[in-house]
Every structure is written in structure tokens, then in C-alpha cells.
Design a binder for these strands. Structure first.
Length: 417
DNA sequence: AAACGCAGCAACCGCCCGTAC
DNA sequence: GGTACGGGCGGTTGCTGCGTT
């Protein structure tokens, strides 16, 4: 059944907004708010516009504190990191960048970042061809699945060099897939994400491509925790952003406002990425497994306590909270796995499917979530989970594990409800 | 100087989801 | 439980300005 249009298209004005229209809309909303009904709003103020159009105009342009253009390197990195994690969910990405709108970020991605990425990819490809044999040898010696200790590398490299993105574990997939011998095709999210992973997320011009090709597979770097004065782990942007390069928003006095509140959202046992839930799984498969699902949503205060409020002010606390809750639990739903797995093929090759919670590759192998991500496959309780994580990452402290609720804890992939 | 092509961005479109009835 | 409706979102379109030929 079709839907009735939200407005009479014949009688509404379309196209660019005039200053007069802007002024009308802005002054009305500032005085009266939206009244909870965008459809009725234009009639109230005598605008011949569709309600949806008014909403967009307000959200993307007239709303206070909107920033346009001038994206920083840090913002680039955050956008790319989140793109890897969650794909083109621009509204969630926008929630991480104060003053940015989803539309702005979407446009920026489509018109600039993607091209920037392509430019780097060409360089990478040339270098990869030169160093391909050497790299394979190093991967072989470094141990492959599980035994690869670089899978929980940290925010900063041991030598103090920036490691914008933590390294990803090298999985025991065929080292060179047929597709990888060709120029990648960037016609879908998955391909772009694969490239992002391959590049290690380094978009900064001060990162030369040599560095990029090396540290994605060869460096074994210690983990650094960035803690605040109260031994809390600050905002997850540190995972993608060296502390000394963080912009003012994420550093110094503002850092305090970004701290995860006690008993709030916590990334469990995440050595390098203390990930506030909203940052989801910015980084490594370890973190993808852990931070994505280990969420004590009971303690998320949608009304805006602590980090949630500070990060999402103006976004509607409950909205973001709900988004995050959704992400925290989705993996319990097999039907969602396929959708959510889109773009994660980089973990196990291009051809794969999910059968009974196991990922089956085109190579006839089957691994569980936990195995694939280097995590305990099943945690039936918080103790089990912690034990498993201790085994895997003994050096990584558990910060404020929010195990107030076993149900949410069990949303770890493969865990029982 | 004119024509053309391209990049950037604002706005629109259509679908999905949550909610009220 | 089914339907209608509004809000929200991601994808796409089309306009504008700038650079190149």
C-alpha cells in the first residue's frame, strides 16, 4: 500500500531557501520550538514549505553551533574509523563530531575523503607490489592467528610514533587472494572499508606510505593506556587519535567532560581503546568483539549524565542511547548478522556466510565469532568472560566492568542469553 | 571570452521505523 | 493486529561556482 504524501507537493516551494524563509523558521523555532510536529510547522509560520524540508533546513543549516567545511585531520580519522565500524550510518558518525551534521559528513565523505583514500590506495598498491614477498615472510614468522601479539596494540607506538589506528590481527586467510591481485573496486562500502583497514587509517599527510605498509603487519607494539586523574579511561577518540594531536575538544580541560562515568558504559578489557559505547568498535577486531557488545546499558542515562550527555548534547540522549543499545544487542539476532556483517569481510576474505553463528568462508573453513575475533567464543557469565579475556590479554586491566546485567553482557557474540 | 567539465554542497526523495489509534 | 502518520535516515539529484581548455 502506498503512502499519502506528507504535503501537497503542488503547493509547496522547493529549491534553495531565501534569507527571509530562514529568518522566519529560525525565529519561530527559537521562540516556540518545533512543537513536536514538523508537518504542521510551516503552516503555522506561513511558509510554503514541506515540513520535512523545514526540518532539514533547521537541522543542517539553521541550528545553532553548526560547523561547515574545514574538516580537520582528526575529524577525518574519526570519520574513517567509524566508517569501518558501522558503515554509512552518518547520523551516528555525526554524533561523534560536535557541530557536524550527518549531511555534511556524508557529503564530505563522498566528495573528498573517498577520493583521498583512493589516492593513497594507489600509492599503497604500488608499494605493496614491491614489498609483497617480504611482507608475506614477516607475517608468516609473526605467527598468524591468535599467536600474533600485535593484535592488541595501542594508541601510541613504542617509539612514540603515531599509530593513528591500532593494528589489526593478521588472520590466517590465504595471504594473497585472487581479488587482491587486482585493483580494488570501490563500488560498495565493503570494498572501501577493506581499503581503509589495509591503509591502517592513516590519512594524515605526515604518515608516509612506508610506515603504513610496515606497521599493518609487522610491528609488535606495546599497549598504552591513557587514563585520567581518576584512573578512568577517557573518551575513545584516543584510540584513533594520539593524545598529543587531539584537538581541543578531546583534550585538556575538555577531556574531563568526556570521561565515562562510573558505572556507565565501559569497554571491557580493551587494552588500547577505552571505547565509550557510542564509539563502538572503532578499531581492532578485539575491540569490535568486546566494546561492541559489552555494554551496561542499565547505566546509560539517556537524560544525559556524564559522557552521554556531553557527547550527544543536542542529539537527543535517548536517540543515541537507543542506537547504541541496538548495537549492543544485535548480535543475538541471527537474522541481523548478515546485514551487520556486511563490510566485515576483511576479517575473513570476500566470500563468506554465516551459518549457525559460525562464519563459513569460501575456503571451506568455519570459525566462530570468538575465534575469528580472537576472543573467547562463549561467555556464559561475566566470570567466564573475564577469565577468557584474562587468558587472552593478561596485561589488560578491566576497567570498571559494567556487569550489572548479565543479559547485556551476554550479548557478546555467541554468548547465551 | 566563451564553452565545457568538475567539485562541492544544499536539498529532495523514498524507504524504514516507531507510535498512536 | 492492522493501519495511518510523522520523524529520521541514507542515497541521490541538481544547482552553483570555479578552473581549464
Amino acid at each position: 500500500m502506498g503512502r499519502a504524501p506528507c504535503c501537497d507537493k503542488a503547493n509547496v516551494k522547493r529549491g534553495p531557501w531565501s534569507p527571509e524563509e530562514d529568518a522566519k523558521l529560525k525565529s519561530y523555532i527559537e521562540q516556540h520550538g518545533t512543537g513536536g510536529n514538523w508537518i504542521a510547522l510551516p503552516q503555522k509560520i506561513g511558509l510554503k514549505r514541506c515540513g520535512k524540508s523545514c526540518r532539514l533546513r533547521w537541522l543542517n543549516y539553521l541550528r545553532p553551533n553548526i560547523k561547515h567545511g574545514g574538516f580537520s585531520e582528526e575529524e577525518d580519522n574519526i570519520i574513517c574509523s567509524l566508517y569501518i565500524s558501522i558503515g554509512s550510518r552518518w547520523s551516528i558518525i555525526a554524533a561523534q563530531l560536535p557541530g557536524r551534521t550527518d549531511n555534511d559528513i556524508k557529503n564530505y565523505w563522498n566528495t573528498r575523503l573517498k577520493k583521498k583514500l583512493l589516492g593513497r590506495q594507489r600509492k599503497e598498491h604500488q608499494l605493496a607490489r614491491k614489498s609483497g614477498l617480504v611482507k608475506q615472510d614477516i607475517i608468516k614468522r609473526s605467527g598468524g592467528v591468535g599467536g600474533n601479539s600485535n593484535s592488541h596494540s595501542g594508541i601510541l607506538a613504542a617509539d612514540g610514533q603515531n599509530s593513528y589506528w591500532p593494528e589489526l590481527p593478521v588472520l590466517a586467510v590465504p595471504t594473497v587472494l585472487p581479488q587482491q591481485q587486482q585493483q580494488p573496486c570501490f563500488n560498495d562500502h565493503a570494498s572501501i572499508r577493506k581499503l581503509l583497514i589495509k591503509l591502517g587509517g592513516r590519512f594524515s599527510s605526515n604518515h608516509d606510505t612506508n610506515q603504513a605498509t610496515q606497521d599493518s603487519s609487522t610491528d609488535i607494539q606495546p599497549t598504552y593506556q591513557v587514563l585520567d586523574d581518576n584512573n578512568n579511561i577517557p573518551y575513545a577518540a584516543t584510540a584513533v587519535t594520539p593524545t598529543h594531536q587531539m584537538d581541543e575538544h578531546y583534550s585538556g580541560k575538555n577531556m574531563q567532560s568526556l570521561l565515562v562515568p562510573r558505572h556507565g558504559i565501559h569497554a571491557l578489557n580493551s587494552p588500547s581503546a577505552p571505547v565509550a559505547l557510542s564509539n563502538i568498535d572503532v578499531i581492532s577486531p578485539h575491540q569490535f568483539a568486546q566494546t561492541h557488545y559489552m555494554v551496561n546499558t542499565d547505566n546509560i542515562d539517556g537524560a544525559g549524565n556524564g559522557i552521554m550527555h556531553n557527547m550527544f548534547q543536542g542529539q537527543g540522549g535517548n536517540y543515541v542511547t537507543d542506537q547504541l543499545k541496538e548495537m549492543a544487542v544485535y548480535n543475538n539476532n541471527n537474522t541481523n548478522n548478515q546485514q551487520r556483517f556486511d563490510g566485515m569481510e576483511f576479517l575473513y576474505g570476500d566470500e563468506m556466510m554465516i551459518m549457525n553463528n559460525r562464519i563459513v568462508s569460501s575456503y571451506g573453513e568455519s570459525i566462530g565469532w570468538g575465534e575469528m575475533l580472537g576472543c573467547p567464543p562463549v561467555a556464559s557469565s561475566s566470570d567466564d568472560y573475564n577469565a577468557g579475556m584474562d587468558r587472552l590479554m593478561p596485561a589488560a586491566p578491566v576497567q570498571e566492568c559494567g556487569f550489572a546485567n548479565d543479559q547485556l553482557m551476554s550479548s557478546y557474540p555467541g554468548a547465551p542469553l
